[in-house]
Design a protein around this nucleic acid. Sequence first.
DNA 1: GACATGACCGCAC
DNA 2: AGTGCGGCCATGT
Length: 89
Amino acid sequence: MSIPLGKVITYGQLASLAGLPGAARLAGSVLCGLPENTELPWHRVINAQGKISLPADSAAYKKQIQRLKAEGVHIKNGKISLRIYGYNN
DNA sequence: GACATGACCGCAC
DNA sequence: AGTGCGGCCATGT
């Protein structure tokens, strides 16, 4: 488990924690290449805007929100509230 | 092996 | 507040 349950992290933070500061795109590229049956919490990864980067009309987008809500992360108008891992509680 | 693209981020105007 | 530009690594052709 890379990300604490009930919390989310931005691509930049994820890349930084991975030891690749500034390589936010890398996180996106990797997550994009993840299989559907992946057990990685990719749904807990959001962009710096505190929102999901995937297209709102995409199934993955809805699924991500659905899972986040199931994790206890309530989304407001498509924006995450608890956002950021290791930051403002 | 090289080029182009990608679920991005931060700063400057 | 919104728009534009440069930079990072991995993946696919």
